[in-house]
Design a protein around this nucleic acid. Sequence first.
DNA 1: GAGATTGTTGACCGAACAGTTTCTAATGGG
DNA 2: CCCATTAGAAACTGTTCGGTCAACAATCTC
Lengths: 198, 198
Amino acid sequence: MARPREFDTDVALNAAMLAFWERGYEATSTQDLLDAMGLSKGSLYKAFGDKHNLFLIALQNYLDHLYEKMKQSVDAGSDPVQSMTGLMGVVENLCYKQEMANGCFAVNTVVELSQRDEQASQILKRHLVRVEKLLATLIKSGQDRGVYRRDVSAEHLAEALFVYIFGMLAQSRGIASPSRTKRLTSFAMTFLQPGLRS
Amino acid sequence: MARPREFDTDVALNAAMLAFWERGYEATSTQDLLDAMGLSKGSLYKAFGDKHNLFLIALQNYLDHLYEKMKQSVDAGSDPVQSMTGLMGVVENLCYKQEMANGCFAVNTVVELSQRDEQASQILKRHLVRVEKLLATLIKSGQDRGVYRRDVSAEHLAEALFVYIFGMLAQSRGIASPSRTKRLTSFAMTFLQPGLRS
DNA sequence: GAGATTGTTGACCGAACAGTTTCTAATGGG
DNA sequence: CCCATTAGAAACTGTTCGGTCAACAATCTC
């Protein structure tokens, strides 16, 4: 019916996402996006609206992929502890991947935009809630099997673990090293365990 | 010897800091700063150099004040647990103050700039290290008195607590409530304790 | 009170910003 | 094969960006 696109929307969107991830929303100019995506201005605006809209789409896309990856690594484990290890592996990868620590696009965006971008804020809040629920479910099943502490409810443990993970991802941009990251994940596992230690 | 300043440097600096704190480095324009500080362009540039320099000075100022406040609340406690409670009170205040959650200027800046601003990164790293050391010292004295767990070294416990606090401050911009904040701080106290719980 | 010195003001600068428009190119349906 | 339709490239728009500068004002020293 008309001229077809010369680029793959998903590929372009992913490139935009990486650009935003690296530099944040404000510091990424339209020119940066054009370079990263390999498009000319008209194409970008025709396909994605404007910069803000492109950002929201890229963000949503990232969040969905991340959540999917988390759920998969949870499902892959044959018991709660194994699932938790897998999930923390996902976090570790975000904290320290091939010499470069970009942290988590979601975390970065919470810090940069939540206060003044209502749309981004709502997208993020929805995601954060579902991740915390995923953690709660996993912790609950660990509690039922007696491998996780029961003096705090699964929901509140999930809250704490979530904050801890959030902290790992946030600080990874400032002070990251593989050994530190490893220590931090293994400590996370210990504070979920029931007591009796010196 | 010459015409004196019409404004108080510290007051102006503090106003600039608040502006940067609220909106971040990139999203704060020189005009925003001028409005917040109540200066005209020439005065600002003569007194503080340029936007980036002003930011660094404001950041350093904030960090020094924050560290001082932390140290004071540690010193005010008569035992490690009381000191820790006081310190967590400082964090709580940052997370949720009078309906508005602006988080921590340091945390926000780590996320926004650490990756691409070498000067900001170094200023921040120096601060993060000293805060972590403060935590380690406090925890060590708690371990010596038997109120904190000893199966993990004070340094590594401090590392974990630091990350947890970092997470609280980072996420506070997205999902903050007084009750959640309270729960999070009290949980932090528990994972430092020695074991024996159900 | 004259002159040296520094602060303040507002006009001004080129560059970069996000976004639009115009024109041409490629496609499918009739 | 022509035409409606959409994609792409590039020139263009008005605005805002960070930063400078020249003129004027206020102070101190002598």
